[in-house]
Design a protein around this nucleic acid. Structure first.
Lengths: 234, 234
DNA sequence: AAGTGGTCTAGACCACTCA
DNA sequence: GAGTGGTCTAGACCACTTG
């Protein structure tokens, strides 16, 4: 018989509580000893559970103040998966134009990237990112219907992934991005205002939820004259 | 008066012990209670220090067996900073041709990337990476003389950074890589066997030691027909 | 059976924040 | 001064590996 560590069980309950919205972003949660009493575990065990949640970027603890639920749609957490940078290394301050959301049957690539079956469905939309009035990236985005049910009907122009994730109780974990160089096809070249066949960075990214389910697949075609893509490795 | 946490002080001593080679890669270190006794701290404090070192990839602990020093030149730790991948996502099995090592005065870019002063000196070398007999990347590498004193004299064809770091007691931490697209200049095009002006991925990478000092700057020009650069974000 | 790391407990005291 | 998280202690017992 397999016995899951107590601090992991405690963490999972607390994570679920945040995903369900029982504790709102920005709010303080009960202090460590109180939580330990509620769960019937020792303070050390509760502390270890909270340590893990801080590492998952769900909580922020401040000595003398308390423990707070992070806002997943905060600038910091939203920028976490955007690696396009200015020459000086700063994140690009940008304007985003989002197209309409529509529901479709999955394509083969979507099956692969989003770990779906042939008969699953996805929402698709496209975006254009501008910097100083010039388009520098266009994106095709796909999200599983299963994770964001009823998305298409609700809002014609969708907010970003992090806002959606917050609304639907999907907690985001890691992302994987495949970067390559391709010649710009016609639609891309027109949208970015560059010559047909100019080389562009192709950014093929999947964002995963904390439980490992893929939450978003995005193909980006990016033309930055002076900037770069920044990868950090630990 | 500022008091550094005990477990951090303990960790620093242990890290220094590994850097100095007092504990060899692959060897087991004393068990937790013995180490705790030696340092005059409680087992819990020693455990926290060891936890941190495991997160720094310096140690591996195995329940029932013991705690072992990681080999920094192992395949796993060496591949950590190489993000070029095959279409199937696997790391490219490769052959490397390394040029001669020579000592130079720093250039402006080296000053910037390696955090050096105008009058510091660096070792430079170049490499060519082959896959199935074809060159897919050429690299210009610079390393501070201060971190690897006497490198040029010792060996004409240098081993990789991870081996050097092991020899010189430099423990590697994180890396930052700037990725962009450029037209291949003459030397690059010739070396890679592509047309002059073909677009290539430019990989501008700095590897940092655990203490934050830059240990290596590498400019790579990479042409992969079907593969990609893989970035993971946590 | 002996030895290791992994988990869990139940406290104590310190450092910081804020009213 | 009251309340919070951060550190530290000194044990106990469990799960796993090896001889």
């Amino acid at each position: 018989m397999f016995k899951r560590a107590l601090y992991l069980q405690v963490r999972d309950v607390l994570v679920e509580r945040i995903a369900a919205g029982a504790w709102k972003p920005g709010a303080a949660i009960p202090n460590e000893v109180e939580l330990a009493r509620e769960f019937g575990v020792s303070p050390g065990t509760m502390r270890k559970a909270l340590d893990l949640m801080e590492a998952m970027r769900l909580l922020t603890r401040r000595q003398g103040r308390g423990t707070f639920v992070n806002d997943p749609s905060s600038a910091e957490l939203t920028a976490r998966f955007s690696n396009v940078r200015n020459p000086d290394g700063a994140s690009i301050v940008e304007e985003v134009k989002t197209g309409e959301v529509a529901e479709w049957a999955v394509s083969d690539v979507e099956c692969l990237r989003l770990h779906l079956s042939k008969d699953d469905r996805v929402y698709r939309l496209s975006r254009k990112r501008l910097h100083q009035g010039r388009a520098y990236m266009i994106e095709d985005v796909s999200m599983p219907v299963a994770l964001f049910p009823g998305l298409a009907g609700e809002q014609s122009s969708s907010p970003g992934l992090t806002e959606l994730a917050g609304q639907y109780g999907v907690l985001l974990g890691k992302a994987e991005e495949r970067v390559s160089v391709k010649d710009a096809p016609l639609g891309v070249a027109e949208a970015l205002g560059i010559a047909l066949g100019s080389p562009v960075l192709v950014l093929d990214r999947v964002v995963f939820a904390l439980d490992g389910r893929p939450a978003e697949w995005r193909m980006g075609w990016c033309h930055i004259s002076d900037g770069h893509y920044l990868a950090e490795m630990k």
